[in-house]
């Protein structure tokens, strides 16, 4: 099931990455976002756009490349990162 944040992220990614094809039915929160297994056909150039988008929209910064790979692996990992970082900002 795609929750609100994951849905919002998917919509934003579709918009900023200019995806015009229909989203495959098998797309879920756990399918790879980037790379050869991406159902959206996204590559590392799109990944840069996503990293900057989540900083602009959600105010959370992806610091390094290895961390980035894990964070933008799927819609779920991306949403979890945003929730965790937002919570940390609130506590601090």
């Amino acid at each position: 099931m795609i929750e609100d944040l994951e849905k919002e992220l998917l919509d934003t990614i579709i918009e900023i990455c200019d995806i015009r094809e229909a989203i495959p039915e098998e797309m879920s929160v756990d399918t790879p976002l980037i790379g050869q297994d991406s159902l959206l056909g996204l590559d590392s150039l799109d990944a840069v756009e996503i990293v900057v988008m989540i900083q602009d929209v959600y105010g959370v910064r992806v610091q390094g490349q290895e961390q980035g790979r894990e964070i933008i692996n799927t819609l779920k990992t991306l949403a979890d990162f945003i929730k965790t970082e937002s919570r940390r900002d609130t506590i601090n």
Partner: peptide, 21 residues
Amino acid sequence: LGQHIRMQEEIGTGGGGFRFM
């Protein structure tokens, strides 16, 4: 341009990543 971005954001931790580090 593509080569530059890959070196900046993919090889090692990338240009932005190294600045954050």
